[in-house]
Simulated scan of single mutants.
Amino acid sequence: MCIIKASQKYFISLQKDYVSPKSLMIVIWILCLNIYQSFPLEVIDFEMGSLVYEAYAEEEKLPYAAGVCVNEAGKMIKAGRISEAIELLESFSSKAKDVSGEKAIQKGYSHYYIDYMLGNALMMLEENSSSKSGSGHGENKTLKKSSGQAYKKNSKDDFTPFLKKASQYYNNAVKKRADLAPAWLNLARCQYTLGDMENAGKAFIKGYEASAKADRKAMHLYYGAICFFQCGDSKNQKKASEVFGKLLSRHPSDITLEWIESYVSILFATGEKKKAIKYLETLAQKTSGKRQRQWQEMLLYQYLEHKMEKRSLAYAKTLTRDNPVEPMWWRTLLHIYLDRNDYKQALNALIIYGFLAPLTNEEQDLMENLYLSLGIPFDSRG
């Protein structure tokens, strides 16, 4: 089964404000979250062991002929003869065309497990070929099919034919047995690799729902949400938000900071910025270093954007206490006090800011106006 790790990138830009010294009004600089629609999911593992085959074969009690075929194909796969296993399974499956539907079911020619195993074998062949340039375990670069055709790489690193064929077999398997969770999840992996993000997202959700409750994994909902988000259109981004909501309610203890960051990006993409505030608060508190500062900036801006005056003032004060040598926090506090017409506190913040960073001409004019408005003599010579 594939295990995919999702990762994402955030880029934060700062647009500085212009201070009008005459009106003492401000324009708070705007902190923008540039959300990249691409969250590269990195495939870090993909295992199809014989125990998976044997467990399902035993549970299903395959027809005798199908069981013999599956066991023989399993031995070939263990020995690294994956191409031969695929030929054997396809040859067995093709016999369904020459007999009645009842006979095909009786013999197991059309059994879902044959399709499932073929999908697995093709995925393993793709894995071996991509990691060993087509020579994994003695496999040839061309895989002959029982029909006389062949699966060939389109180029040195293009294994699309393997993946497309595997997807077809997995689709056949889930049509015959809709609760076959491993087939859904492997189908999702194929579709993701092929760039079919919407169907990959659907397959991840199907795989999650088809799993026994005790076996349902939070990561599959997460992967589904990220695949929907990668589609880039508003409909699928909304779907990503809905899936993430389900993830949060069903698996609260499994949520990582990385996942919360993804959710914030999704909420911004869907215009649910106010809903994102509680998660920004978590990120601003629990991250560290440069990343923490970015989330602190974002959180403070959201407080300001949503007119949460008490929170923005309290948080700006907290930031100046926690990191008193950071000019940005004093500058923000200055602007908050100006908005509140609290010129005395604004002047205090501006004076401290001036010790930490050189003042622009506009800021020097602002300081003079603040002194004058408070009736305090101002010496322009400093």
Score class of each variant (00 low, 15 high):
Lys22Val: 11
Asn34Arg: 12
Ile35Thr: 13
Ala55Tyr: 09
Glu60Thr: 08
Lys61Thr: 11
Pro63Cys: 03
Gly74Leu: 03
Ala79Asn: 12
Ala79Lys: 13
Gly80Ile: 05
Ile82Gln: 02
Ala85His: 03
Glu87Ala: 07
Leu88Trp: 05
Leu89Thr: 02
Glu90Trp: 01
Lys95Pro: 00
Ser100Trp: 06
Ser100Val: 06
Tyr109Cys: 04
Ser110Trp: 03
Ser110Gly: 09
His111Leu: 02
His111Tyr: 03
Asp115Arg: 05
Ser133Glu: 12
Ser133Phe: 14
Gly134Trp: 02
Gly134Asn: 03
Gly138Gln: 04
Asn140Trp: 06
Lys141Gln: 10
Leu143Gln: 09
Leu143Val: 12
Phe162Asp: 01
Lys165Glu: 15
Gln168Lys: 09
Ala173Phe: 03
Lys175Asn: 13
Leu180Tyr: 08
Ala183Cys: 10
Asn186Leu: 09
Ala188Trp: 03
Arg189Met: 11
Tyr192Cys: 07
Gly195Pro: 05
Met197Arg: 09
Met197Gln: 11
Lys206His: 09
Glu209Trp: 01
Ala214Tyr: 05
Ala218Gly: 03
Phe229Thr: 05
Leu248Gly: 03
Arg250Ala: 14
Val264Ala: 05
Ile266Gly: 02
Leu267Thr: 07
Ala269Leu: 07
Gly271Asn: 05
Lys273Val: 07
Tyr279Trp: 09
Glu281Phe: 03
Lys286Cys: 01
Met298Glu: 12
His306Pro: 06
Glu309Met: 10
Ala316Gln: 00
Thr320Asn: 13
Val325Tyr: 09
Glu326Gly: 15
Glu326Thr: 15
Arg331Ser: 15
Leu333Phe: 09
Ile336Asp: 00
Ile336Met: 05
Ala349Gln: 12
Ala357Thr: 14
Leu359Ala: 12
Asn361His: 04
Glu362Leu: 11
Asp365Leu: 15
Asn369Tyr: 08
Ser373Arg: 14
